[in-house]
Simulated assay, not measured.
Amino acid sequence: MEVDSINLRLLGVDISRKAVNLARRNQKRLEHEYTGPNQFELSALQGLQFIQADVLKDDSGPTDTNVQALMDVLKGHAKQSGEALRWDILISNPPYISPSSFNKSTSRSVRNFEPKLALVPPEVPGSTGLNAGDVFYPRLLAIAEEVSAKMVLFEVADLEQADRVANMAKRSSSWNGIQIWRDVPAETPVELTKSRFKVLGHGSGRSVFCWRGEAAKWLGLASEKSGRA
C-alpha cells in the first residue's frame, strides 16, 4: 500500500492545558529530530493533533470544569470539516485509582511527583454503585459508540478492575471480542478471570481490549466470535 493512500488521523486528548502544551512541544521536538527513512512514521507524527477537552462531561449534567466536552469538540470539528464523526480506534489511560487506594497503597513517589488529576477520578453525580476507580470507563465506552470505534484499549490498575471493565463492555452487547491483556500480551499463557474473560500474556493485568466489525479482519480474528470464553 502506498503511504499517500493512507488517510491517518491521530488525536490526543487531555483535560490539562499543561499536559497538552507539553505534548505539543514534544511533538515538535520529535519532528525536528526525526531522521528515520519511514515517511509513513513522519507523516503520522506531523498529522498528530492534541486538544484540551473533558472526557467525562456530557449532556447528563455539569461537571466542575470549564473545559469543553470532548464530544462537543469532535462534533464541532466533524460539522466544520464535513467529515463523518468516526474514529476507528480508541485508546485511553484514564485516572483509575480510587481515593482510598491512592492514600493507602500508592507509592510515595507517585503521590508526591505525579499530578493527582491524572491518577484519581473525580466524583461524578449519578455514578452511585460504581467502584470509585471505575468512573471513566462507562463514559469511554459510550464515546466509543458515538464515534463508531472498531476497537478500544483501556489501561487498568489490576486484574480485578480489568474484570469489572470487561463486564461493562459485555453488558453493552456491542463487541465481538473482549480480552484482558497483561503487561506483555503474548498469545500464551491464557487464563480466565472469575467472569471467564480471557487473560493473555505475562506480568500484571494491564488493559482491556475490545473489538468488533472490520477490526476482526485487521487483527486476523475473523473466526473468533468473542473474546469471552
Rank of each mutant, 00 (worst) to 15 (best):
M1F: 13
E2W: 10
S5E: 14
S5Y: 11
D14Y: 05
I15N: 06
K18Q: 13
N21A: 09
N26C: 07
N26H: 10
Q27R: 15
Q27C: 04
R29S: 08
R29Y: 09
H32G: 08
E33M: 13
G36N: 08
Q39T: 12
Q39N: 14
F40V: 08
A44N: 03
A44H: 00
L45Q: 04
Q49D: 15
I51H: 05
D54P: 06
V55N: 01
V55F: 05
K57Y: 08
D58L: 05
D59A: 12
V67E: 05
D72S: 09
D72M: 05
G76L: 07
G76Q: 07
E83N: 12
W87H: 08
L90D: 01
S98L: 00
S101A: 14
K104F: 03
K104D: 12
S105N: 15
S107G: 08
V110M: 05
F113N: 11
F113H: 13
F113I: 06
P115H: 07
L117Y: 13
P121H: 06
E123V: 14
P125Q: 07
T128N: 15
G129I: 02
N131H: 13
N131Y: 12
A132V: 02
A132L: 10
A132S: 14
G133N: 05
D134A: 07
Y137R: 01
P138D: 03
L140V: 03
I143K: 00
E145S: 15
V147I: 15
M151G: 03
L159E: 10
L159A: 02
Q161I: 00
N176I: 01
Q179V: 12
Q179S: 11
W181S: 02
D183R: 09
V184W: 12
A186S: 13
E191G: 09
K194F: 02
R206D: 00
R212T: 00
G220D: 05
L221E: 00
S223K: 15
K225T: 15
